[in-house]
């Protein structure tokens, strides 16, 4: 496994001192703050580690463009640095990708994995969406070539504002990491996972649709799957944290060592 030469400092926040340690990893463009309310509820009975992933919140960005495997290695190091034998991993969206990479690479340090509206699977596009994706993909390639030949900046000035996702626009220096992450598919890694896995999914998700959740459920053997009706990509926001905590705690209760 490739470990980056640099190991950027991780900004973390710990809540609660009793119970089994659980690491909370946020989504793209977020920080540990997005999972803080959930962390506080889990922290009543568990040792919660909220993590700012490198490049987000107060954690500095890595020196090079990491893929999610390198993110996973950094979290693996964190577990070792803190002398944690086995942890529960909770990942939302991008943090879910990292959780899957980490669990697949180092199953021995993971007691269980909890995915909330996780990323990692390529969308199966249909109809208009498929057409649009094909069109914009071709367009972006062509424009990039024109830019390369003529030194123009059509891609940046014309294509990005019209066709790029909000995440891409806001990614700043992390753009290449974002591109790596969204073009990756973690299917193979997910299939390898034997650790107890709980998949929680806000039903009305536009970013990582319910269909992704169903596929993860099918890919990860023995996984449990709960759909939260009426919730979106962020089911734990506001007082939704209580609802998510209820189902997460129900799952954690069933694990050995509780």
């Amino acid at each position: 496994m490739i470990v980056a030469a640099n190991t950027p400092v991780l900004n973390t926040q710990k809540i609660g001192s009793q119970g089994h340690p659980i690491l909370l990893m946020h989504g793209w463009g977020q920080s540990l703050y997005s999972l803080q309310a959930l962390g506080e509820l889990l922290g009543k009975t568990h040792q919660v580690h909220l993590i700012d992933l490198p490049g987000f919140g107060k954690s500095p960005a890595p020196d090079e463009d990491w893929d999610t495997k390198q993110y996973a290695e950094r979290i693996y190091q964190y577990v070792k640095e803190n002398n944690l034998k086995q942890v529960d991993l909770l990942g939302h969206s991008f943090g879910g990708r990292v959780s899957i990479r980490l669990t697949s690479a180092h199953p021995e340090i993971v007691r269980s994995m909890i995915l909330i509206n996780s990323g990692g699977l390529k969308r199966t596009l249909t109809g208009k969406r498929k057409l649009r994706a094909k069109y914009s993909g071709l367009l972006s390639k062509t424009i990039k070539q024109i830019d390369k030949m003529t030194g123009s900046k059509i891609f940046e000035n014309w294509f990005v504002p019209r066709f790029a996702s909000l995440d891409y626009k806001n990614a700043g220096s992390l753009r290449n990491i974002l591109v790596k992450a969204v073009t990756e598919d973690v299917t193979e890694d997910a299939q390898k996972i034997k650790n107890p896995t709980f998949i929680l999914w806000g039903e009305k998700d536009q970013e990582t649709p319910l269909e992704s959740g169903e596929r993860f459920h099918a890919l990860i053997s023995g996984s449990q799957f709960v759909v939260l009706p009426g919730k979106d990509h962020f089911p734990f926001l506001g007082d939704g944290a209580h609802l998510c905590a209820r189902y997460i705690l129900n799952f954690l209760k069933t694990l050995p060592g509780e």
Binding site: V226, V227, L228, P229, G230, D239, G240, L243, R246
Partner: peptide, 13 residues
């Protein structure tokens, strides 16, 4: 707030 926290798996608000 209450609807946000309600167990929507069991209940439909």
């Amino acid at each position: 707030q209450m609807i946000e926290a309600m167990d929507t798996v069991k209940y439909r608000p």
